[in-house]
């Protein structure tokens, strides 16, 4: 058990360094969402409630997490392509340790994203500071696990050339299906129902609701949380199976 934890810690440390030393990861995971948060607030917040900071900041937090899928997937697919993972498969590390090593490396990144975008949002609009923000930060770790799981799954099945395209579907999916960039009340009921079936809108709603106060816990908290958790569990199981299958292929 102690050896296993030590190996997970070692794998996590290496994965954090690999991701953070890629300048593109900092640009896409931190700088781009930060730029969007500031720009969109000042341009649009007087035009539509969508861009008031109490909705925009949680939306940006979840949007930025979509890039976790990209960089997790990219790291795994590159490790596979370069035979780095093959080498590690001969070491004492076990499949679950690899997966935990990848996942644990991205959780601190998600935490930094969440704290940073909430703090900047709070500096711009201090009304969002409060206990809701702390709850938002904590729950954003839960929503980040969904995107990390997607990244592990994509990295296990996609080659290094395909991973960018595959992960961009998740980023686009988050943008369109979260409903954060446009008011959804003009959309058809069918489309809104479809949006509610996917985890993207539920993840965004969850963080927005806990930041702004929950009046109907079943509808505003438990339903979106359980949908996100169900998707996260399903994708994690698929990711573990695919990763193990790739190990066997080696």
């Amino acid at each position: 058990m102690r050896n296993s934890l030590s190996r997970i810690k070692t794998l996590t440390g290496r994965n954090i360094k690999e991701i953070l030393r890629d300048p593109l990861s900092l640009i896409l995971m931190i700088l781009l969402p930060l730029f969007m948060e500031i720009l969109f607030y000042f341009i649009f917040h007087n035009l539509t409630s969508q861009f008031e900071m109490k909705y925009l900041a949680p939306g940006i937090v979840v949007f930025s997490q979509a890039f976790l899928a990209l960089f997790t997937g990219q790291l795994i697919s590159l490790d596979r392509a370069s035979a780095f993972l093959t080498r590690l498969f001969v070491s004492k590390a076990r499949p679950h340790e690899f997966i935990l090593g990848y996942a644990a490396a991205l959780v601190p990144v998600a935490l930094v994203q969440s704290v940073l975008f909430f703090l900047i949002g709070g500096i711009i609009d201090p009304s969002i500071f409060g206990a809701g923000m702390i709850r938002g930060v904590l729950l954003s770790i839960v929503t980040s696990l969904f995107f990390i799981a997607v990244g592990i799954l994509l990295g296990s099945v996609c080659g290094e050339k395909a991973i960018g395209g595959a992960a961009s579907i998740i980023v686009i999916g988050q943008s369109i299906l979260s409903g954060m960039w446009f008011p959804i009340d003009k959309l058809s009921e069918g489309f809104i129902f479809a949006m509610r079936c996917f985890p993207f809108k539920n993840a965004t709603d969850l963080i927005q609701n806990v930041l702004n106060g929950v009046s109907d816990p079943a509808d505003q908290f438990w339903t979106p949380l359980l949908i996100v958790l169900a998707y996260t569990a399903a994708v994690f199981i698929a990711a573990i199976l695919c990763f193990k299958a790739k190990m066997k292929e080696k």
Partner: peptide
């Protein structure tokens, strides 16, 4: 099969730690 963004020293240290 090396960790691309790690230095030579970090690669050696990483692999040593992974092997206990």
């Amino acid at each position: 099969a090396v960790a691309r963004n790690l230095t030579v020293e970090e690669n050696v240290e990483f692999y040593a730690r992974l092997n206990g």
